[in-house]
C-alpha cells in the first residue's frame, strides 16, 4: 500500500486530493457518456475545468444556486444520468442539506456530492469556509455513502468507485497539497479500511490527508519503543467493521484522527461500533467543538491539535488507559 520511501517527507511528490478527483472525473467522462458534472461557480477550485472543456454539453454551470443544483442533479439521476455536483462542503452539502436529504438520499438518487474544500485545512479563507461538521451530518443520513481519500492516488480511486456504485455518495476532498504516499496499484473498495503499517501496541485509525501525520507519528513512536498500527479508513460509511474489530482485538487501544469535529465524526463512528462489540480505550484527534480561523494549513493543524505531535500525545494517553483497563 505504502510507497517505498513514504517516510522521506521532503522527497515525496505533493498534490491535493481534489486534483485526483479532477483527473479521475475527466477519465470517467471519456469512458461513460452518462457522467455529467454540475458546478456552483467553483469550476477551477473544484477541478472540473478539464471536464468542462472536454465535454461542454455535459457540464452544467449552476451559479450560486446550490439548492437548485442538488435538485437538478437528483432529477438527472432519476432520468438515468450519473451527476457529480461540485462545490465546497460548507455550501454543498451543508448549504443545501434539505435538498440533499429529501431529493437525493430519500429518493436514492444516483448523485455524487463532491466537496473539493473540506476540513480546517482549507486554510486562509477562515472559519466560514472550513467544513468541520460535514462527516457527522452526512453519515447520519440514510442511504448515504461517505468517502474521503488519504492522498491524490486514492482520490482517483474513490472517484471511480463512486461512479460505479449506484446510489448517493458524499466525496470529501481537500484543497491543500499533501504528500502522495500510497501506491498507484493499490486497490480501493467501498466499505474497506487498509492497514498501512503493522504494529502491536495501539491502532491509529485515520482518514483524509491526516493519515500521513499518523504515519509520521508512528515513525517517531517507534523510537520510544511504541509500535503503532496505522489504518487508513477512507470509507467512513459503510464502515469496515471486520477490520476495525480485528485491529481492536490485536492492539486493545485506539486513537482516531480526522480533520473534523470530534463530535459525530469518523472517530464517533469507530467508538460507537467498538463500544458495542469490543470495548477498548479510545482517544480522539479532531476539532474540539470550536470553529476554525485563518492561517496556512500546517499552522492550523498545529494550533488545533491535529498534527503528528498531538497524535503522539494521544497515543501515550491511550496507552496509560490501556494499562489501567487491562488490570481491571
Amino acid at each position: 500500500m505504502l510507497i517505498e520511501n513514504w517516510n522521506q517527507k521532503d522527497k515525496l511528490q505533493i498534490k491535493a486530493t481534489r486534483d485526483g478527483f479532477g483527473e479521475a472525473i475527466l477519465e470517467l467522462g471519456k469512458q461513460n457518456s452518462n457522467i455529467v458534472v454540475l458546478c456552483a461557480d467553483l469550476t477551477e477550485s473544484t477541478r472540473v475545468s478539464d471536464f468542462k472543456n472536454n465535454f461542454p454539453e455535459r457540464f452544467f454551470e449552476m451559479g450560486l444556486t446550490e439548492q437548485n443544483m442538488a435538485l437538478v442533479a437528483a432529477g438527472m439521476a432519476l432520468s438515468g444520468l450519473i451527476p457529480f455536483m461540485c462545490s465546497f462542503a460548507v455550501f454543498s452539502p451543508i448549504g443545501n442539506l434539505t435538498q440533499v436529504r429529501v431529493s437525493i438520499a430519500y429518493n436514492q438518487a444516483n448523485v455524487k456530492i463532491v466537496s473539493s474544500h473540506s476540513g480546517i485545512s482549507v486554510g486562509e479563507d477562515g472559519a466560514t469556509h472550513q467544513a468541520i461538521e460535514d462527516i457527522a451530518i452526512m453519515r447520519a443520513i440514510p442511504n448515504m455513502v461517505v468517502l474521503t481519500p488519504c492522498d491524490f492516488e486514492e482520490a482517483k480511486k474513490i472517484t471511480i468507485a463512486a461512479a460505479k456504485y449506484n446510489g448517493p455518495v458524499y466525496l470529501r476532498f481537500e484543497r491543500q497539497k499533501t504528500p502522495i504516499f500510497t501506491k498507484k496499484e493499490s486497490t480501493f473498495e467501498i466499505g474497506k479500511a487498509q492497514i498501512l503499517k503493522d504494529g502491536k501496541d495501539v491502532a491509529i485509525i485515520a482518514c483524509g490527508s491526516l493519515v500521513y501525520e499518523a504515519l509520521l507519528a508512528a515513525n517517531d513512536l517507534e523510537k520510544e519503543g511504541i509500535y503503532a498500527m496505522i489504518i487508513n479508513n477512507p470509507s467512513i460509511k459503510p464502515l469496515d467493521e471486520n477490520k476495525i474489530l480485528e485491529v481492536a482485538k490485536k492492539t486493545r487501544s485506539i486513537v482516531t484522527v480526522e480533520d473534523h469535529q470530534i463530535k459525530g465524526g469518523m472517530g464517533s463512528a469507530i467508538a460507537q461500533f467498538i463500544s458495542q462489540n469490543f470495548p477498548v480505550p479510545i482517544e480522539f484527534v479532531g476539532i474540539n467543538d470550536c470553529f476554525g480561523e485563518s492561517g496556512n494549513f500546517e499552522e492550523l493543524r498545529a494550533k488545533f491539535n491535529l498534527d503528528s505531535h498531538y497524535i503522539k500525545e494521544k497515543v501515550r494517553q491511550v496507552l496509560k488507559k490501556k494499562g489501567r483497563f487491562n488490570k481491571r
Binding site: Q67, N68, A70, G75, M76, S79, Q99
Partner: peptide, 9 residues
C-alpha cells in the same frame, strides 16, 4: 428543480 434536471436529461 427536479423537473429541470429531468428536462435537461
Amino acid at each position: 428543480s427536479i423537473g429541470i434536471g429531468m428536462a435537461l436529461a
